[in-house]
Design a binder for these strands. Structure first.
Lengths: 187, 187
DNA sequence: TTGACAATATAGACCGATCTATCTAAAAAC
DNA sequence: GTTTTTAGATAGATCGGTCTATATTGTCAA
């Protein structure tokens, strides 16, 4: 139970932060939703920011694991998998409660680049970009960094348009935009 | 003075919201920074949300006017101007205090698509996208909507990477990524 | 130019609600 | 029997918003 309460708090907080934002979600709300005593939270996390960081760390691995798993399920070759990234995004955007990227939102609420929360967001974005770069390398692109970065920009742009502009078609738009780039790279 | 106080409040709030975020900026901070009485604010705006909306409206026109002006100054033909959009972004990203896009940040803090603040963000994103679509049409692209949307995704993606991932080179990456798309469209 | 009236701005008290965080003492779990 | 969890009181700060009574404006007529 020692760590089950901790995980329960992370899961609960993650869901609230995702659906309502960070400042908008109070500690009271988290403990009420988790059905846990206030001191249990402060026993596991020394502050709200620490809880946010723990939630983001959990989301980072969870999101990327899910992305990789889904992409590998959708396609077999690296070239196809680069395209499948957008199919995975499409599923995400059109899921029941899509509320944008938690890390973009975190960076939006915590502007200071030195803030640990902002740093967590930056690291997540770098890891996702690296994953796409890796796929581009595996696919044998002549300049995998450049191709990966380009495809990553389309992916990030589609997240923004899906959330801020409420364009649930953004992933399909991105996939179409990616095609000439992949072709130009011989893929 | 009637409207000068109002404009002073909008300018002050805009700057604070931009630098620190919406929830993180209290009314007290706005009136202190503006050097204005509390009731002066509530005389001009019936709530904080109304002030946010007024600030976003002002920023929407200001940002887009600045973008158009800068793009037109940097390039003469529509094809060149599509490329110049990324040069304008590059200047923005590397300016003294870049804190990301106020509208992406607004959507991040106000998730509900029905929320007027979120709607203001959506409308801004649509207007910027339409501007790029228009440039693509003026440039004689075979499918100006598709090209415009693709180039817009690269632009939005670069804003995210510049802010969340602290990649000040994102606009140059986006410009390089745009080139094959423009070429494929005969531009 | 002056006087008068209406609109606006002022400082600051005040409200209830909420915020993060701490503390304690009893209960439960391992 | 030691660690963890519990409920709830409590702290001090801050939140958005209202109210009042005074002072400062801007406008227009005499």
């Amino acid at each position: 139970m020692a760590s089950s309460k901790r995980q329960l708090l992370i899961d609960t907080a993650l869901d609230l932060f995702r659906r309502e934002g960070y400042h908008a979600t109070g500690i009271d709300r988290v403990i009420a939703e988790a059905g846990v005593a206030r001191m249990t939270l402060y026993n596991h996390f020394k502050s709200k920011d620490e809880l946010i960081l723990a939630a983001l760390r959990h989301r980072d691995s969870g999101f990327r694991d899910g992305l990789v798993r889904r992409v590998e399920h959708l396609a077999d070759t690296p070239g196809e998998r680069l395209r499948a990234v957008y199919d995975a995004l499409d599923i995400w955007f059109n899921s029941d409660d899509f509320h944008g990227c938690m890390f973009i939102n975190a960076a939006a609420e915590y502007h200071d680049p030195e803030n640990p929360i902002h740093i967590a967001a930056r690291e997540h974005k770098e890891r996702v970009r690296n994953y796409i770069r890796d796929l581009a390398a595996q696919a044998g692109a002549p300049d995998p960094e450049a191709l990966g970065d380009s495809l990553n920009l389309l992916a990030e742009g589609s997240i923004v348009m899906a959330h801020a502009a409420n364009d649930k078609n953004a992933a399909k738009t991105a996939k179409a935009a990616a095609e000439p780039l992949l072709r130009a790279a011989g893929l």
